[in-house]
Design a protein around this nucleic acid. Structure first.
Lengths: 208, 208
DNA sequence: CGTTCGTTTGAGGATATTCAATCCATGTGG
DNA sequence: CCACATGGATTGAATATCCTCAAACGAACG
């Protein structure tokens, strides 16, 4: 995966362009070098629920190494530059490439479980602050934290992640701004002190 | 996995007994021969969110074949009889056992994505009917449908799956009973016509 | 300069929660 | 066989949270 061979082709996607369509066979995965993307489901009435967020540095979608089929569509949330990684090139030979993908898969699996907890048991405020804290933590792990942490998501995008309406997201986020927990810069959100955001989450820690 | 060798030991768990504790190393998986179990997270204030349901016939937790560690606790929701399947016995030799577990893992992964959609975008009524429909469908796939489909879950358990309070679950379920979509038999719920329940779900299908 | 996309604000209403009781079946000990 | 304790289901009233509808606003873009 980290083979610096430079043989893997770079792909560019514009915002709203699809990296994959639900049902399609996949013969590659992507590593996002720049930009954000997501997996989502569209309801018949047009509402959208995002089921996974892909940040710069993430591999999208690691499970294709197992199933070779996109269950859901993947779309770019910003302009994206991605490295194309053919599955054939790593599936033969029990490479470290495979185990890296498997690790990423399990990480996503556990993240989904966590997100079920958020959606099931947290208030709007808790879900949004939890999302910002998660994003910061993941960017940090990917080595992509500029100071401070910036989030190029639309409030509509955020709403589709946290399962709320954009109107209500706006009210919650505005309140966070009033408290100084986030700042706005144009349409991107800035989290100046991620550690404080983390403490905002209502009733979330661990046990049992 | 289906080796009828009879060498695998049977394990019994009483209701509320743990099959695994979060953080524990695991050297086996379980196939549930009888009874129901779940994976869950406990919040600091005592509320619980169930992140996976295990039905008779299911393997619990297939991802242990990869990670060998329980991220979250697993508890029996009813009395359980399970077959213990040592991981060592199938990890060497690229058995069909492994690929069966991998398949189950991917099924659970996709089910979690679907559940995120439910929690994020469905009403109480939609979540509960979706849950019943999912349960019926899974029991059928596992070859465990007696006529009719019975669900031995407490309303509190259901609440912890769908992310609602038991009080509100009671109101919704009572309304479903009034409409004849479910029946009660003591504390267990019966779904006489699962196909009709399926049509109750508000705004759920596919697209995009 | 008019569109377009995204944000912001208000008013009103629907949905789900909270807090409390009550009910009911089951199981236990006397 | 009955009194009592227990766990779960049920109901009501009041409240909180979030949604819907509608309009206005602002920046970016062609």
């Amino acid at each position: 995966m980290k083979s610096g061979l430079g043989k893997e082709p770079l792909r560019r996607f514009r915002r709203h362009e699809h990296l994959a369509l639900g049902g399609e066979a996949q013969d590659r995965v992507y590593r996002l070098d720049e930009g954000w993307a997501c997996r989502y489901t569209l309801l018949p009435d047009g509402r959208r629920q995002i089921t996974a967020l892909y940040l710069p540095g993430d591999v999208c979608e690691p499970q294709w190494v197992i199933s070779s089929k996109a269950e859901l569509s993947i779309v770019a949330l910003t302009d994206v530059i991605a490295t194309e990684i053919p599955l054939g090139s790593i599936r033969n030979a029990s490479d470290e490439g495979v185990s890296e993908l498997i690790d990423a898969l399990m990480t996503n699996f556990n993240r989904q479980s966590d997100w079920i907890v958020s959606l099931g048991r947290r208030s709007a405020n808790g879900r949004i602050t939890a999302l910002f804290a998660e994003i910061y933590s993941r960017l940090q792990q990917n080595g992509r934290v500029r100071q401070p942490c910036t989030i190029p998501l639309t409030q509509q995008d955020i709403a589709d992640v946290v399962g709320l309406t954009p109107v209500h997201v706006n009210r919650v986020v505005s309140e966070l701004r009033r408290q100084g927990l986030v700042q706005f810069s144009g349409k991107t959100i800035i989290v100046p002190r991620p550690d404080e955001i983390d403490r905002q989450q209502d009733g979330m820690g661990l046990a049992g």
